Simulated assay, not measured.
Amino acid sequence: MTIRVLLADDEAMVRAGVRAILGSDDAIDVVAEAADGLEAVEAAQRHRPDVAVLDIRMPRMDGLAAGAEIRRTVPGTAVVMLTTFSEDAYIAKALGDGASGFLLKSGDPRELIAGLKAVADGAAYLSPKIAQRVIAELGAGSGGGRMSRAAAAKEQVEVLSPREREVLALVGAGLSNAEIARRLFLVEGTVKAYVSAILTRLAVKNRVQAAIVAYEAGLVTD
Results as ranks from 00 to 15, higher is better:
residue 109 P to R: 06
residue 90 Y to L: 11
residue 143 G to E: 00
residue 193 A to V: 14
residue 211 A to S: 12
residue 179 E to T: 07
residue 117 K to Y: 11
residue 1 M to A: 13
residue 79 V to M: 04
residue 63 G to D: 08
residue 7 L to K: 05
residue 171 V to R: 01
residue 177 N to T: 12
residue 165 R to P: 05
residue 67 G to T: 04
residue 114 A to S: 05
residue 140 A to G: 04
residue 203 A to G: 11
residue 168 L to P: 02
residue 121 D to C: 12
residue 138 L to Y: 08
residue 10 D to W: 14
residue 210 A to N: 06
residue 32 A to Q: 13
residue 16 A to C: 04
residue 122 G to T: 06
residue 213 V to T: 15
residue 153 A to F: 14
residue 197 A to S: 14
residue 49 P to N: 04
residue 158 E to D: 08
residue 3 I to Q: 00
residue 115 G to E: 06
residue 172 G to S: 04
residue 198 I to W: 03
residue 72 R to T: 11
residue 75 P to E: 10
residue 78 A to C: 04
residue 200 T to F: 06
residue 25 D to R: 03
residue 148 S to N: 09
residue 191 V to L: 07
residue 188 E to S: 13
residue 39 E to G: 11
residue 18 V to S: 08
residue 198 I to E: 01
residue 186 L to A: 12
residue 100 S to F: 02
residue 11 E to I: 04
residue 15 R to G: 07
residue 142 S to F: 14
residue 29 D to V: 08
residue 121 D to R: 14
residue 68 A to L: 09
residue 130 I to H: 07
residue 55 D to L: 09
residue 34 A to W: 13
residue 27 A to Q: 09
residue 53 V to M: 11
residue 182 R to L: 09
residue 32 A to F: 14
residue 96 G to A: 06
residue 163 R to H: 14
residue 152 A to S: 15
residue 28 I to R: 05
residue 91 I to T: 10
residue 73 T to N: 15
residue 156 Q to K: 13
residue 168 L to A: 06
residue 216 E to T: 15
residue 13 M to C: 01
residue 107 G to D: 13
residue 2 T to Y: 03
residue 144 G to A: 02
residue 101 G to Y: 02
residue 4 R to N: 13
residue 214 A to S: 05
residue 123 A to F: 01
residue 87 E to G: 11
residue 111 E to R: 14
residue 146 R to C: 07
residue 172 G to H: 10
residue 144 G to V: 00
residue 14 V to R: 08
residue 190 T to C: 02
residue 106 S to H: 06
residue 58 M to Y: 04
residue 168 L to Y: 01
residue 151 A to N: 09
residue 66 A to I: 01
residue 22 L to A: 02
residue 16 A to G: 14
residue 86 S to W: 14
residue 67 G to A: 08
residue 78 A to M: 05
residue 24 S to M: 15
residue 65 A to F: 00
residue 157 V to W: 03
residue 76 G to H: 10
residue 23 G to D: 13
residue 49 P to T: 03
residue 137 E to F: 00
residue 140 A to S: 15
residue 165 R to C: 02
residue 51 V to L: 07
residue 93 K to A: 15
residue 148 S to I: 12
residue 141 G to Y: 12
residue 6 L to G: 10
residue 12 A to C: 01
residue 124 A to Q: 06
residue 109 P to A: 06
residue 203 A to I: 00
residue 36 D to P: 12
residue 68 A to P: 01
residue 175 L to V: 01
residue 38 L to A: 13
residue 97 D to S: 09
residue 94 A to E: 10
residue 138 L to I: 15
residue 106 S to A: 05
residue 129 K to N: 15
residue 205 K to E: 15
residue 10 D to H: 14
residue 40 A to S: 06
residue 43 A to C: 15
residue 123 A to H: 02
residue 125 Y to L: 05
residue 209 Q to H: 10
residue 64 L to P: 10
residue 144 G to M: 04
residue 88 D to N: 05
residue 68 A to H: 07
residue 162 P to T: 11
residue 117 K to F: 09
residue 115 G to L: 08
residue 201 R to W: 10
residue 11 E to G: 00
residue 13 M to L: 14
residue 130 I to A: 08
residue 156 Q to V: 01
residue 31 V to W: 04
residue 217 A to I: 01
residue 219 L to Q: 12
residue 163 R to D: 15
residue 82 L to T: 03
residue 13 M to G: 00
residue 124 A to L: 04
residue 77 T to P: 00
residue 168 L to M: 03
residue 221 T to M: 12
residue 10 D to G: 05
residue 95 L to E: 13
residue 179 E to H: 03
residue 192 K to R: 11
residue 51 V to M: 08
